[in-house]
Write a protein that binds this DNA or RNA. Structure first.
Lengths: 147, 147
DNA sequence: TTGCGTGCAAAGGTTTTGCATGGCA
DNA sequence: TGCCATGCAAAACCTTTGCACGCAA
């Protein structure tokens, strides 16, 4: 298949993504950055390239909330392990890499009982991380009332 | 606080939500339905009322994908702890509503072993559904090659 | 009467699409 | 030379906001 032609814009985008693999990137952020760097890329092209990268599994797409731009993040090829899921905290935005045998059972259960094959590369568990849970707990202890 | 005035539109919306608690409702769906029923409600009002319902905890809001409208679902007050996940097929786009005791174990595991509290109404499993898996299998059998 | 709720239209943002042009193979 | 990729602008969406009017309390 060959992943299409090699172009300057494609390189520029992938480059940025690999150099910012620890962050989540929005199209806006990326576009502005490329403008500042003197290597602007059209918005449509950014969307189209990111879409391809997502299909190739090199980039993961997250949606925290509708009405807000989607977030993208580079995924190193050596981490494309099948049973590798991610937890994303909705409070602080941190991303937890989860390697755990329980998740293998999950995939198998969903497949055998529900006929659905999960794509771990695209699937993200949203919720609240340990640290934020603790913070929330502390805050609510200050103004206790019934539910 | 008193939840504001009681209005016809508010009733209409909450009514629809409670009667469709097993479905994912988008603002568009809701709006069209109300139009057809001869009880149209302005889009802005729908957004404003749903927002209030979310604040009250009677409705949950979640996002399947950016660029697509948010989904809303009524949560019966006595069912607020019920585990409820979604499977979204990346091929045909169908959305599967999953209620399964195994998922309860999942939440408990993630919480006890990883300190992370999953938000089931926000989390979506991406993958391929039964029907599409069958189609793909049929297609690839025609031109077999290694992976 | 008071002030929240509603509807309309406009605005603000994100993402997609059409089409002519440009660049890779 | 064929196509695919790009860029621009327009379009398509989703959601929010401003404002005048209506209606609940």
């Amino acid at each position: 298949m060959g992943n299409g032609y090699k172009t300057k814009q494609k390189d520029t985008i992938l480059n940025y993504m690999t150099e910012h693999k620890d962050f989540h990137v929005t199209v806006n952020t990326l576009s502005d950055y490329l403008d500042e760097q003197g290597t602007p890329v059209g918005t449509a092209t950014i969307y189209r390239q990111l879409e391809k990268l997502v299909e190739q599994g090199l980039v993961r797409k997250y949606t925290v909330d509708s009405g807000t731009g989607a977030c993208f993040q580079y995924v190193p090829p050596d981490k494309k392990c099948h049973e590798h899921y991610h937890l994303k905290c909705e409070k602080c935005g941190c991303l937890i890499h989860l390697e755990c045998s329980f998740m293998k059972e999950l995939s198998e259960h969903i497949f055998s009982d529900h006929g659905f094959e999960i794509d771990p590369l695209r699937t993200v568990f949203y919720g609240v991380c340990r640290d934020c849970l603790r913070n929330i707990k502390n805050e609510t202890e200050e103004n206790i009332k019934d539910e």
